[in-house]
Design a protein around this nucleic acid. Structure first.
Length: 271
DNA sequence: AGGGGGGCCTGTTCGC
DNA sequence: TGCGAACAGGCCCCCC
Protein backbone atom coordinates (compact mmCIF):
# COMPACT_ATOMS: atom_id res chain seq x y z
CA UNK A 1 0.00 0.00 0.00
CA UNK A 2 2.02 2.89 -1.22
CA UNK A 3 1.75 5.90 1.04
CA UNK A 4 3.74 9.12 0.89
CA UNK A 5 7.20 7.58 1.53
CA UNK A 6 6.76 4.84 -1.06
CA UNK A 7 5.38 7.25 -3.64
CA UNK A 8 8.28 9.61 -2.98
CA UNK A 9 10.79 6.81 -3.46
CA UNK A 10 9.18 5.63 -6.69
CA UNK A 11 9.03 9.21 -7.96
CA UNK A 12 12.75 9.70 -7.40
CA UNK A 13 13.47 6.32 -8.92
CA UNK A 14 11.67 6.95 -12.22
CA UNK A 15 12.72 10.59 -12.32
CA UNK A 16 16.33 9.86 -13.10
CA UNK A 17 15.30 7.84 -16.15
CA UNK A 18 12.62 10.20 -17.46
CA UNK A 19 14.06 13.70 -17.17
CA UNK A 20 14.39 15.30 -20.60
CA UNK A 21 12.95 12.27 -22.40
CA UNK A 22 9.91 12.06 -24.68
CA UNK A 23 7.27 9.33 -24.82
CA UNK A 24 6.97 7.71 -28.24
CA UNK A 25 3.91 5.55 -27.63
CA UNK A 26 1.33 4.37 -25.13
CA UNK A 27 -0.02 0.82 -25.01
CA UNK A 28 -3.01 0.17 -22.77
CA UNK A 29 -4.11 -3.28 -21.64
CA UNK A 30 -6.67 -2.16 -19.06
CA UNK A 31 -8.67 0.75 -20.46
CA UNK A 32 -9.94 2.08 -17.14
CA UNK A 33 -6.39 2.93 -16.16
CA UNK A 34 -6.77 6.08 -18.28
CA UNK A 35 -9.08 8.01 -15.98
CA UNK A 36 -9.76 11.23 -17.87
CA UNK A 37 -8.01 11.00 -21.21
CA UNK A 38 -7.75 8.76 -24.26
CA UNK A 39 -5.01 7.47 -26.51
CA UNK A 40 -5.75 10.26 -28.98
CA UNK A 41 -5.36 12.82 -26.15
CA UNK A 42 -2.02 11.19 -25.46
CA UNK A 43 -1.06 11.51 -29.12
CA UNK A 44 -1.94 15.19 -29.27
CA UNK A 45 -0.82 16.42 -25.84
CA UNK A 46 1.79 14.07 -24.37
CA UNK A 47 3.51 12.21 -27.17
CA UNK A 48 6.90 13.69 -28.17
CA UNK A 49 6.71 16.38 -25.46
CA UNK A 50 9.83 16.80 -23.35
CA UNK A 51 9.50 15.68 -19.73
CA UNK A 52 10.61 18.78 -17.87
CA UNK A 53 10.18 17.55 -14.33
CA UNK A 54 9.00 14.58 -12.27
CA UNK A 55 7.71 15.23 -8.77
CA UNK A 56 5.29 14.09 -6.10
CA UNK A 57 2.20 15.82 -4.71
CA UNK A 58 0.36 13.85 -2.02
CA UNK A 59 0.27 10.29 -3.41
CA UNK A 60 0.38 11.42 -7.04
CA UNK A 61 3.46 11.06 -9.23
CA UNK A 62 3.45 13.98 -11.65
CA UNK A 63 5.21 14.32 -14.97
CA UNK A 64 5.51 17.91 -16.12
CA UNK A 65 5.28 18.07 -19.89
CA UNK A 66 5.05 21.83 -20.15
CA UNK A 67 1.50 22.33 -21.42
CA UNK A 68 0.11 19.41 -19.42
CA UNK A 69 0.78 17.25 -16.38
CA UNK A 70 0.48 13.51 -16.47
CA UNK A 71 -0.51 12.20 -13.06
CA UNK A 72 -0.14 8.64 -11.78
CA UNK A 73 -1.83 7.26 -8.69
CA UNK A 74 -0.66 3.81 -7.60
CA UNK A 75 -3.62 3.20 -5.27
CA UNK A 76 -3.25 -0.23 -3.66
CA UNK A 77 -1.03 -2.39 -5.80
CA UNK A 78 0.30 -0.19 -8.58
CA UNK A 79 3.97 -0.58 -9.46
CA UNK A 80 5.78 1.88 -11.69
CA UNK A 81 9.21 1.06 -13.04
CA UNK A 82 11.55 1.38 -15.99
CA UNK A 83 12.72 -1.61 -18.01
CA UNK A 84 14.63 -2.31 -21.21
CA UNK A 85 11.97 -4.67 -22.55
CA UNK A 86 8.42 -5.68 -21.70
CA UNK A 87 8.05 -9.00 -19.92
CA UNK A 88 5.08 -10.60 -21.69
CA UNK A 89 4.72 -13.22 -18.98
CA UNK A 90 3.56 -10.62 -16.46
CA UNK A 91 -0.19 -10.92 -15.97
CA UNK A 92 -1.04 -7.48 -14.66
CA UNK A 93 0.63 -4.86 -16.82
CA UNK A 94 -2.11 -2.23 -17.15
CA UNK A 95 -0.14 -0.06 -19.56
CA UNK A 96 3.34 0.92 -20.68
CA UNK A 97 4.91 3.93 -22.33
CA UNK A 98 7.92 3.80 -24.64
CA UNK A 99 10.69 6.40 -24.41
CA UNK A 100 14.22 6.32 -25.76
CA UNK A 101 15.17 2.65 -25.79
CA UNK A 102 13.24 1.92 -22.57
CA UNK A 103 9.74 1.53 -21.22
CA UNK A 104 7.87 3.00 -18.28
CA UNK A 105 5.70 0.14 -17.05
CA UNK A 106 2.61 0.32 -14.88
CA UNK A 107 1.80 -3.03 -13.33
CA UNK A 108 -1.25 -3.26 -11.10
CA UNK A 109 -2.76 -6.47 -9.76
CA UNK A 110 -5.99 -5.03 -8.41
CA UNK A 111 -6.45 -2.50 -11.19
CA UNK A 112 -7.26 0.42 -8.90
CA UNK A 113 -4.38 2.56 -10.12
CA UNK A 114 -5.08 5.46 -12.47
CA UNK A 115 -3.37 7.78 -14.95
CA UNK A 116 -4.62 11.34 -15.25
CA UNK A 117 -4.05 14.31 -17.48
CA UNK A 118 -4.21 17.76 -15.88
CA UNK A 119 -3.66 21.18 -17.40
CA UNK A 120 -1.72 22.26 -14.32
CA UNK A 121 -1.28 21.64 -10.63
CA UNK A 122 -4.12 23.94 -9.52
CA UNK A 123 -6.84 21.34 -9.72
CA UNK A 124 -4.97 18.92 -7.47
CA UNK A 125 -4.01 21.69 -5.09
CA UNK A 126 -7.66 22.58 -4.69
CA UNK A 127 -8.48 18.99 -3.69
CA UNK A 128 -5.47 18.15 -1.55
CA UNK A 129 -4.44 19.23 1.91
CA UNK A 130 -1.14 20.24 3.39
CA UNK A 131 2.08 18.32 2.66
CA UNK A 132 3.24 16.92 5.99
CA UNK A 133 6.94 17.14 5.18
CA UNK A 134 6.98 20.85 4.38
CA UNK A 135 7.49 23.70 6.80
CA UNK A 136 3.89 24.82 6.23
CA UNK A 137 2.91 21.78 8.29
CA UNK A 138 3.78 23.52 11.53
CA UNK A 139 2.87 22.88 15.14
CA UNK A 140 0.53 25.85 15.02
CA UNK A 141 -1.12 24.55 11.88
CA UNK A 142 -2.01 21.20 13.39
CA UNK A 143 -3.09 22.70 16.71
CA UNK A 144 -5.45 25.12 14.99
CA UNK A 145 -6.81 22.72 12.43
CA UNK A 146 -7.50 19.76 14.70
CA UNK A 147 -9.25 22.12 17.08
CA UNK A 148 -11.72 23.39 14.53
CA UNK A 149 -12.78 19.94 13.35
CA UNK A 150 -14.92 17.48 15.27
CA UNK A 151 -13.83 14.25 13.73
CA UNK A 152 -12.48 10.90 14.76
CA UNK A 153 -8.77 11.53 14.60
CA UNK A 154 -7.96 8.51 12.47
CA UNK A 155 -10.52 9.48 9.82
CA UNK A 156 -9.09 12.97 9.83
CA UNK A 157 -5.54 11.71 9.29
CA UNK A 158 -6.74 9.61 6.35
CA UNK A 159 -8.55 12.57 4.80
CA UNK A 160 -6.31 13.68 1.92
CA UNK A 161 -7.94 17.11 1.83
CA UNK A 162 -6.73 17.67 5.40
CA UNK A 163 -3.17 16.33 5.48
CA UNK A 164 -2.08 14.38 2.42
CA UNK A 165 0.08 11.32 2.01
CA UNK A 166 -0.87 9.46 5.17
CA UNK A 167 -2.47 6.06 4.62
CA UNK A 168 -3.72 3.34 6.90
CA UNK A 169 -0.32 2.11 8.09
CA UNK A 170 1.21 5.45 8.98
CA UNK A 171 -2.00 6.70 10.57
CA UNK A 172 -1.93 3.82 13.05
CA UNK A 173 1.78 4.23 13.69
CA UNK A 174 1.58 7.99 14.25
CA UNK A 175 -1.36 7.63 16.63
CA UNK A 176 0.46 4.95 18.58
CA UNK A 177 3.50 7.21 18.85
CA UNK A 178 1.36 10.02 20.28
CA UNK A 179 -0.61 7.68 22.57
CA UNK A 180 -3.89 8.78 21.01
CA UNK A 181 -6.88 6.46 20.69
CA UNK A 182 -7.92 6.33 16.99
CA UNK A 183 -11.53 7.24 17.83
CA UNK A 184 -10.63 10.34 19.84
CA UNK A 185 -12.45 13.43 18.58
CA UNK A 186 -9.87 15.79 17.11
CA UNK A 187 -11.08 18.92 18.91
CA UNK A 188 -10.99 17.18 22.30
CA UNK A 189 -7.41 15.95 22.21
CA UNK A 190 -5.00 17.86 24.43
CA UNK A 191 -2.56 20.24 22.78
CA UNK A 192 0.28 18.25 24.25
CA UNK A 193 -0.84 15.08 22.47
CA UNK A 194 -1.49 16.92 19.23
CA UNK A 195 2.10 18.14 19.32
CA UNK A 196 3.22 14.55 19.85
CA UNK A 197 1.09 13.56 16.89
CA UNK A 198 2.78 16.20 14.77
CA UNK A 199 6.13 14.79 15.82
CA UNK A 200 4.93 11.24 15.12
CA UNK A 201 3.67 12.02 11.62
CA UNK A 202 6.91 13.70 10.60
CA UNK A 203 8.95 10.96 12.22
CA UNK A 204 7.26 7.93 10.68
CA UNK A 205 7.10 9.46 7.21
CA UNK A 206 10.63 10.79 7.09
CA UNK A 207 12.20 7.72 8.67
CA UNK A 208 10.42 5.55 6.17
CA UNK A 209 11.71 7.59 3.25
CA UNK A 210 15.19 7.37 4.71
CA UNK A 211 14.98 3.60 5.18
CA UNK A 212 13.44 3.03 1.76
CA UNK A 213 16.28 4.96 0.24
CA UNK A 214 18.99 3.05 2.04
CA UNK A 215 17.57 -0.45 2.34
CA UNK A 216 16.69 -0.79 -1.29
CA UNK A 217 19.23 0.45 -3.75
CA UNK A 218 17.16 0.81 -6.86
CA UNK A 219 13.43 0.38 -7.07
CA UNK A 220 13.47 0.73 -10.78
CA UNK A 221 13.88 -2.91 -11.59
CA UNK A 222 12.58 -4.34 -8.38
CA UNK A 223 9.73 -2.32 -7.03
CA UNK A 224 8.18 -5.46 -5.54
CA UNK A 225 10.08 -4.82 -2.35
CA UNK A 226 8.62 -1.40 -1.72
CA UNK A 227 6.03 -1.52 1.00
CA UNK A 228 6.24 -2.63 4.56
CA UNK A 229 9.62 -4.13 3.92
CA UNK A 230 11.60 -1.16 5.07
CA UNK A 231 9.41 -0.22 8.00
CA UNK A 232 9.75 -0.78 11.68
CA UNK A 233 6.14 -1.22 12.62
CA UNK A 234 4.98 -0.95 16.22
CA UNK A 235 1.26 -1.64 15.95
CA UNK A 236 0.19 -2.16 12.35
CA UNK A 237 -0.54 -5.85 11.82
CA UNK A 238 0.58 -6.64 15.36
CA UNK A 239 -2.80 -7.55 16.80
CA UNK A 240 -2.46 -10.07 19.64
CA UNK A 241 1.15 -9.10 20.28
CA UNK A 242 2.46 -7.06 23.17
CA UNK A 243 2.70 -3.31 22.84
CA UNK A 244 6.43 -2.49 22.49
CA UNK A 245 5.96 0.28 25.04
CA UNK A 246 3.69 -0.87 27.84
CA UNK A 247 3.05 -4.64 27.72
CA UNK A 248 -0.59 -4.05 26.76
CA UNK A 249 -2.10 -6.32 24.11
CA UNK A 250 -2.51 -4.78 20.68
CA UNK A 251 -6.09 -4.81 19.50
CA UNK A 252 -7.51 -4.68 16.00
CA UNK A 253 -10.81 -3.04 15.18
CA UNK A 254 -12.40 -1.04 12.36
CA UNK A 255 -12.41 2.72 12.06
CA UNK A 256 -13.71 4.38 8.93
CA UNK A 257 -13.96 0.94 7.28
CA UNK A 258 -10.23 0.33 7.78
CA UNK A 259 -8.40 -2.19 9.86
CA UNK A 260 -7.15 -0.21 12.84
CA UNK A 261 -4.49 -1.30 15.31
CA UNK A 262 -3.87 0.25 18.70
CA UNK A 263 -2.92 -0.48 22.27
CA UNK A 264 -5.94 0.01 24.55
CA UNK A 265 -3.66 0.43 27.54
CA UNK A 266 -1.52 3.34 26.43
CA UNK A 267 -3.75 4.85 23.76
CA UNK A 268 -6.57 5.96 25.99
CA UNK A 269 -9.68 7.50 24.52
CA UNK A 270 -10.03 10.58 26.71
CA UNK A 271 -7.21 12.98 26.13
C1' DA B 1 -20.38 18.49 8.61
C1' DG B 2 -19.41 13.95 9.53
C1' DG B 3 -20.18 8.98 9.31
C1' DG B 4 -21.55 4.76 6.98
C1' DG B 5 -21.78 1.86 3.13
C1' DG B 6 -20.98 0.34 -1.71
C1' DG B 7 -18.05 -0.07 -5.72
C1' DC B 8 -13.83 -0.86 -7.99
C1' DC B 9 -10.45 -5.44 -8.23
C1' DT B 10 -7.82 -9.97 -7.42
C1' DG B 11 -4.79 -12.76 -4.51
C1' DT B 12 -4.78 -14.58 -0.03
C1' DT B 13 -6.75 -16.30 4.11
C1' DC B 14 -10.44 -18.17 6.63
C1' DG B 15 -14.31 -21.22 7.90
C1' DC B 16 -17.26 -25.00 7.29
C1' DT C 1 -9.01 -31.54 1.75
C1' DG C 2 -11.61 -28.33 -1.01
C1' DC C 3 -14.51 -24.99 -1.84
C1' DG C 4 -16.70 -20.51 -1.60
C1' DA C 5 -16.87 -16.45 1.42
C1' DA C 6 -14.60 -12.89 3.54
C1' DC C 7 -10.90 -9.85 3.68
C1' DA C 8 -7.35 -6.42 2.32
C1' DG C 9 -7.62 -1.06 1.24
C1' DG C 10 -7.15 4.31 -1.47
C1' DC C 11 -10.39 6.94 -3.20
C1' DC C 12 -14.87 8.40 -4.95
C1' DC C 13 -19.73 8.74 -4.66
C1' DC C 14 -24.20 8.51 -2.63
C1' DC C 15 -27.17 8.65 1.38
C1' DC C 16 -28.61 9.96 6.07
Amino acid sequence: MPELPEVETVTQSVKKHLMGKQFRSLDVNWQKTLHNFTISDFDSSIKNKVIKNVYRRAKYILLDLGEVLMGIHLRMTGKLYVVDSIDRSKKHISLYLAFGDKYLVFEDTRKFGRFYMFDGIDYLNSKLGIEPLTKDFSKNWILENTKKRNRQIKSLLLDQSFVCGIGNIYADEALWYARIHPLSISSQISGKKILKLHEGIVKVLSESIKKGGTTIRDYTYDFAYVGNYALNLNVFGKQGENCPRCEGLIFKTKVAQRGTHYCPKCQVKIS
